[in-house]
Design a binder for these strands. Structure first.
Lengths: 216, 216
DNA sequence: GACAAACGCGAGCGGTCGCTCGCATTCTGG
DNA sequence: CCAGAATGCGAGCGACCGCTCGCGTTTGTC
């Protein structure tokens, strides 16, 4: 075993002990990347532009990321990690008797708030140009969300085929996304109006499937 | 006027009399471009790849199109022209007393059929990477569709503020698009099931706003 | 058949982009 | 305090891409 005695690693991976400075640079670069990705999309964003935005040289950028894809991956990882936490809160309390309308409203509010705080998430997840790995993660997240919604729905629809529940969950998520796009395209009062419409859509779609006691 | 006596043109534009061969090449190139745009998106599609797909040299491609953007523009023009015709049929008969469910169903069916026949349309219209001119055309089409839906809605909702009708129209179109994405992602029976869900979504969303007599 | 114009080719030009490399500077453990 | 690692720089390499240009071939017209 001709390797460093202190830490064993996978043959070709160096430990790369980072200093505080390096961690700061990484955060700085990711922030810059988020900004550039937001305005130009992934493919059109050049690594030199990201470095310039961060106020460093291209070489410095490649000190911390092996390639352009890794920047998007890392950014996506951090966003997805944060989003999983948010969705843990948003969908975990599988309403025992809370009215459907409130449950839908609460989930939508959290979903919208997250995406307004992190606009780059939308940009990264909707680009058709994004490389392999990050798409995989997106699919992971998508699958997670769908299964969460499935769980929620199947507790409300006990006597429904699984395939149908899955389909309903996919539809809900799709409408969620479309609504988000509309919401992000507007500001202020108009934005809030679109949020209400999104809640209406989902509520009215789901209500007839469930013994709804709160009809608008 | 030191120009050709037969046809007057805008100072720098040559008439470029095409032969039958040329027209065939153009169709061939547009078909190849549609295929390449479909699989790789606009920006990632190289003009050399389009030429190769069409079985001609890059130089030949530029015999017929001044630049890459013009290919997408021409392709978009032809698609939009065809779509306008389709939508003329889909939304023109502003149902006097036909039930809402049927009206929605018919519109959705036509919309879906068109996009299944022309998958490149979806690719061109959803890419965030598409250059200026084609986006303008997309916005044109979008505005046209919205105003059509608005007209349809305002005849059903006489005493509703215009701003609200507009918003509802935008929501309908957004849900249309999201549903389309789900539909295109599936095949056969599952696809048809998603089409039914899309119709449900729109019908249940709109029904409470209107004196609906056909409740499911 | 002759002439011009449209068509067709493909090597290659100019430019951008992802990324590298050699070297200087700053930090940290012993 | 000093050896070595981590950090920082920026000119520039190789690859690719949109597009051009010169030249040969086909087609339409008189």
């Amino acid at each position: 075993m001709p390797e460093t005695p202190e830490k064993e690693q996978a043959a070709d991976e160096r430990p790369r002990r980072r200093q505080a400075r390096g961690e700061r640079r990484i955060a700085q670069l990711l922030e810059a990347a988020a900004s550039v990705f937001c305005t130009t999309g992934y493919t059109a964003a050049s690594t030199n532009a990201i470095a310039r935005e961060a106020g460093v040289s291209p070489g410095t950028l490649y000190q911390f990321f092996p390639n352009k894809e890794a920047i998007a991956i890392e950014l996506g990882d951090r966003l997805i990690h944060e989003m999983r936490a948010t969705y843990g809160e948003a969908l975990a309390p599988v309403d025992p008797a809370t009215p459907l309308e409130e449950a839908v409203g609460a989930a939508v509010d959290r979903f919208i708030a997250f995406n307004c705080d992190h606009p780059v998430f939308f940009a990264l997840m909707h680009g058709p140009d994004i490389p392999g790995r990050i798409t995989e993660e997106h699919d992971d997240l998508h699958a997670t969300l769908v299964s969460r919604i499935e769980a929620l729905l199947s507790s409300l629809l006990p006597d429904t085929p699984a395939a149908e529940v899955t389909r309903t969950a996919h539809v809900c998520l799709g409408m969620y996304k479309a609504g988000l796009e509309l919401v992000l395209a507007h500001e202020g009062a108009e934005r809030e109006a679109y949020v209400r419409e999104l809640k209406n859509i989902l509520f009215r779609y789901l209500a007839p499937m469930i013994g709804d006691r709160t009809t608008t």
